[in-house]
Amino acid sequence: MKASVLQAKFEQIRSNKVFELFVITVIILSALLVGAKTYNQPLINEITRYMDWFISLFFLTEITIRFMAEENKRRFFHSFWNWFDTLIVLVSLVPAENADMAVIARLVRVFRVLRMISFIPELRLLLVSLVKALPQLGYVMLLLFIIFYIYAAIGSTLFAEVNATLWGNISISLLTLFRVMTFEDWTDVMYETMAVYPLSWIFYLTFIFLSAFAFLNMVIGIVVNVMEQESAKVKAAQDLANHEPTMKDLMHEIHALRKDIDNLKKQ
């Protein structure tokens, strides 16, 4: 009885909106703390050292509250995000002052910012959608690489004599094409080759159309489509969880059962 009452209190704390906002605030503070440490000032280092321990202990307390609020403790670790949060919290308890573990400890504290993803459902939805879109994106990336490779081979063959630094071999040509795709001073590259090959603008414009416009829109379309599917699944799960059968629903089911029984009797 006492255990159930204690579990209910922890559940009340976990579901409290003020508590959730405070956790998000501490996560943001943790991110700011990582940036403050880069200034390497004695006063800032002293303040951040105490703040870092406060944040670590708070996260440990918060993950304990979430664990104790779970009615079935085994189900707590059925969630990937609970595993993720627990791992980040436990590893962040490694003392940063330890010379051997200092670099690892600081890196882990940087990753504490990722707890924002696990704590905010909308961010989780974005990440899950992106991960689930990866198989479809893989085929788009493969086709994009083929386009890159073809254009790099053409560029290396035609423009190597114009500028060997940009078109000397196929690997350098791939980097140059990436620069063109991202519109980083690509006109300078184009005008340089146009001085020798006046029609080389066709090479650049067709490549930009295929890579930057067509394939980029395909990537966006795939991610948006997967995100819409995941949003629909989450909404359906929430509607199912919130649905409680009313007396009207029960009467409708009883009426349907009676109808089925009458049909069986007639047979």
Rank of each mutant, 00 (worst) to 15 (best):
L177T: 10
A195M: 13
S4P: 12
Y204M: 01
L123N: 08
F76H: 10
E230F: 01
F207D: 06
N169Q: 09
F207Y: 15
I24F: 03
T246G: 13
W83G: 01
L60Y: 04
T176P: 03
I120C: 04
F213R: 14
A153E: 06
N242D: 15
K132E: 02
Q267W: 13
W167N: 01
F54D: 02
L199G: 10
A102R: 14
I88V: 07
V234D: 05
L142C: 01
S171P: 04
V34H: 09
S4R: 15
N169A: 06
L6H: 05
I47N: 07
R179V: 00
R112K: 10
Q12G: 14
L130T: 14
A96Y: 06
G221L: 12
F183E: 11
L33C: 01
W53A: 01
V108A: 10
A69T: 03
K9T: 06
L144Q: 13
R14F: 08
E122D: 07
M227I: 01
S79Y: 13
S211R: 08
A69R: 07
S79T: 04
I202G: 11
S30C: 05
A96M: 11
K2P: 06
R49E: 03
I120D: 03
K233M: 04
T246K: 12
M194Y: 06
I88A: 06
Q267H: 14
D100W: 05
P198R: 11
R74V: 03
R66C: 04
G221A: 13
P135Y: 00
R109N: 06
V89H: 02
S79K: 15
K9Y: 13
V131K: 11
I55E: 01
L216T: 15
S92D: 10
A160F: 13
A133E: 02
K265I: 00
I104G: 04
E97G: 05
L43W: 15
R75M: 07
T206C: 11
